[in-house]
Simulated scan of single mutants.
Amino acid sequence: MKVVNIKEIIDFLDKKGNIYESSVCNEDDIIGFSSITHYKKNTISWVKNEKKLADIKEKLSDEVQLLIVPNIDMKGVSVKNYIKVSNPKGIFFDILGNFYGEKEEYNIGKNNVISTLAKIGDNVSIGNNCIIEEYVEIGHGTIIYNNVVLAKGVKIGINCTIKSGAVIGEIGFGYSTNENGESIRVPHFGSVDIGNNVDIGANTTIERGTIDNTVIEDGVKVDDLCQISHNVYIGENTNIITNTAIYGSVKIGKGCYIATSVIRNQLTIGNNVTIGMGSVVVKDVTDNSIVFGNPAKEKDKR
């Protein structure tokens, strides 16, 4: 495992402009990483909050070479070096990514069907067996895994990740009824616009809009096995967890957290909303609300 000097980690945090408080010896080294519950000597680890630290405090010793902790009192905690930050999980994995992460190799895999009318940016990686249709645009640094379908006109921003089996931009489940009572598919003339730094999970489906585009804004993270229907709008930095189904023409605000749920069509979900696991949302949800249940009801404010 790679040896990293603690001074290198401090320099890394300084370069990124992270705000922290530290008690470290810059001459010490770490040799890899481990979880705090299964700590390995001379590694870097982290704790989530003061309660977690209290739970394991008696088990800690000076063998803990470097611990990333929240902004809490470390008096009486026996660790050799520590760094206090407001987001210990994020900083811990940022450090691991920089010093121990695999460097992404950008390449185009095998058996892909890529239209000559598609626009692909620099340093884009495309796996195997993908279909990329005409007028698709893929931004710089985006990674597309295997068996992905990007239908006509889909636009994907920079530094996105599209995991295996995702289908983006196919027509949605939209029908009208003719004079004979037969279901007739509504034509879909829109497409899908995906912003920058967006992650789309494995086997997730995002349908094209009927007239306007389906829109996924910057920083959105969509888990595996999700369904996002036609004309949906999802605001910046919203997280959507596995097996969530969002029906047509739903508008979701910024900074939301949507656990495994079903959201009825044509609803508006405000900014900074939390929707709890197993919820069935049948009414609009106002800003900063915490809702859950079937049907989902407001329980608190964020």
Rank of each mutant, 00 (worst) to 15 (best):
V3E: 09
V4R: 00
N5S: 07
I6G: 02
N18L: 15
N18S: 14
I19R: 06
I19D: 03
S22C: 04
S23Y: 11
E27G: 08
E27Q: 08
D28A: 08
I31Y: 11
K41R: 03
K41I: 06
I44D: 01
I44Y: 01
S45P: 01
V47A: 13
D55K: 13
D62M: 15
D62N: 15
D62K: 15
D62R: 13
E63R: 09
L67T: 10
I68N: 01
I68M: 11
I68A: 05
V69C: 01
P70M: 13
M74Q: 09
M74C: 09
S78K: 14
K80H: 09
N81M: 05
I83R: 03
S86C: 08
P88W: 02
P88Y: 04
F93K: 00
F93V: 03
L96G: 08
L96Q: 06
L96S: 05
K103T: 12
K103M: 12
E104L: 12
E105G: 04
E105I: 14
E105H: 04
Y106Q: 06
K110F: 09
V113Y: 14
I114C: 10
S115C: 04
I120H: 09
V124H: 05
S125N: 01
N128P: 01
N129D: 14
I131V: 13
E134S: 13
Y135H: 12
V136I: 07
I138D: 00
N146Q: 05
N147M: 07
V148I: 12
V149R: 06
A151Q: 13
I156F: 08
G157K: 00
G157N: 01
I158N: 11
T161N: 14
I162V: 13
S164R: 07
A166H: 02
I168F: 10
G169R: 03
G174W: 07
G174L: 08
S176C: 13
S183T: 05
R185A: 15
R185L: 12
V186S: 02
H188G: 06
G190N: 01
S191G: 04
D193Q: 14
I194Q: 01
G195L: 02
N196R: 06
D199T: 15
G201P: 06
G201R: 03
N203W: 11
N203R: 11
D212G: 15
V215N: 10
I216N: 08
I216E: 04
E217V: 02
E217Q: 11
D218S: 02
D223M: 00
L225E: 12
Q227A: 05
H230R: 02
Y233K: 14
Y233E: 10
E236Q: 12
T238M: 04
I241V: 15
I241Y: 06
T242Y: 00
N243S: 14
N243V: 12
A245D: 05
A245I: 05
Y247V: 14
I252C: 08
G253E: 04
I258P: 01
I258Q: 03
T260M: 13
Q266R: 10
I269L: 00
N272P: 07
M277L: 13
G278L: 05
V282S: 02
D284I: 04
N288G: 01
V291W: 04
V291H: 03
F292W: 15
E298T: 09
E298L: 06
D300V: 09
